[in-house]
Amino acid sequence: MHSSGYERLQSQVIPGYSSLARLSVALLAASPVAQADGVEVMVAGCGTGAELLEAMAQRPDWRLTALDPSAEMLQEARQRLGEQATVQWRQSTVESLVDEAGMAGRFAGALSVLVLQSLPDDGSKLAFLTALARCLQPGAQLVLVDLMQTSLPSLEDQLEHAWQGFQRASGLDASSQEGLHPIGLARLTSLVNAAGFGDPARVFQALGFEGFLLQRLS
């Protein structure tokens, strides 16, 4: 699927998706560390490049590392953005990247949009978050957006049906959360604390999709 089709599909599946990249970049750009000129910022799981396009529009001075394990996604993003001197393209995972020389503590900020939800909570989520924290400078922030479990179990069925209704109203055959691994806020807090971040601050919510600001501890 080409980037335009992918973005259109995501906007039909996820309430508020069309604003997520813009909001995520604006939040990170206002952070104490990443607001400095010419800093390095990571886009973890860059997909077809929505966050990269916004970063280049809002902060053309940033030096971006676009990271994705999928060669197909990276190719789509590169075609979409064209060759840019300020973007370094890496087919890799954060867990592999952080072990390379010079990567620990390198970045002034990071974006991770709709990535953690695809990882099972069998150590994979913690490994991902820990690698992100290790890549960041002390005090740097991560914008994390994912599908979450509700803190009120009695609302789970209603939210699931509402999400499916939203998709049908957007012209899609409704899909479920099968294949995704959402967690609740208490579990997320435990994981990010163990990884080296402070408590998550919620900055976005639309049905089950939530966005958080996380700050790496010193």
Results as ranks from 00 to 15, higher is better:
residue 7 E to A: 14
residue 14 I to G: 08
residue 15 P to V: 09
residue 17 Y to S: 01
residue 17 Y to A: 07
residue 18 S to H: 05
residue 18 S to F: 00
residue 19 S to F: 09
residue 20 L to N: 05
residue 20 L to H: 02
residue 20 L to A: 12
residue 22 R to Y: 05
residue 24 S to H: 02
residue 26 A to G: 13
residue 26 A to D: 10
residue 27 L to R: 11
residue 28 L to M: 10
residue 30 A to D: 15
residue 30 A to R: 13
residue 33 V to P: 08
residue 35 Q to V: 14
residue 35 Q to G: 11
residue 36 A to V: 00
residue 37 D to H: 10
residue 38 G to R: 02
residue 38 G to W: 04
residue 39 V to I: 05
residue 46 C to D: 02
residue 46 C to W: 04
residue 47 G to I: 02
residue 50 A to N: 13
residue 50 A to V: 08
residue 51 E to I: 06
residue 51 E to L: 07
residue 52 L to Y: 02
residue 54 E to W: 05
residue 56 M to A: 09
residue 56 M to S: 06
residue 60 P to V: 01
residue 62 W to I: 09
residue 62 W to Y: 15
residue 63 R to A: 10
residue 63 R to Y: 05
residue 64 L to P: 09
residue 65 T to K: 07
residue 68 D to Y: 04
residue 70 S to A: 12
residue 70 S to W: 02
residue 71 A to T: 08
residue 74 L to F: 11
residue 74 L to T: 06
residue 74 L to D: 03
residue 74 L to W: 07
residue 78 R to C: 07
residue 78 R to G: 12
residue 79 Q to I: 04
residue 83 E to Q: 12
residue 84 Q to H: 12
residue 86 T to S: 15
residue 86 T to A: 14
residue 87 V to K: 01
residue 88 Q to S: 14
residue 89 W to K: 07
residue 90 R to Q: 15
residue 90 R to H: 12
residue 90 R to S: 12
residue 91 Q to W: 06
residue 91 Q to F: 09
residue 93 T to S: 14
residue 98 V to A: 12
residue 99 D to L: 11
residue 100 E to Q: 15
residue 102 G to K: 10
residue 103 M to W: 10
residue 106 R to I: 00
residue 106 R to Y: 00
residue 106 R to M: 01
residue 108 A to K: 02
residue 109 G to R: 04
residue 109 G to T: 04
residue 109 G to L: 11
residue 111 L to W: 01
residue 112 S to W: 04
residue 112 S to C: 15
residue 112 S to N: 11
residue 113 V to T: 14
residue 114 L to V: 08
residue 114 L to C: 14
residue 114 L to S: 08
residue 118 S to W: 09
residue 119 L to S: 13
residue 120 P to Q: 01
residue 121 D to A: 06
residue 121 D to L: 01
residue 124 S to I: 06
residue 124 S to V: 08
residue 126 L to A: 14
residue 128 F to L: 13
residue 128 F to C: 13
residue 129 L to A: 11
residue 129 L to N: 10
residue 129 L to R: 08
residue 131 A to T: 06
residue 135 C to V: 05
residue 136 L to Q: 04
residue 137 Q to Y: 06
residue 140 A to N: 03
residue 143 V to G: 06
residue 144 L to C: 04
residue 145 V to G: 07
residue 146 D to P: 00
residue 147 L to Y: 07
residue 149 Q to C: 14
residue 150 T to M: 06
residue 151 S to Q: 12
residue 152 L to R: 15
residue 152 L to C: 13
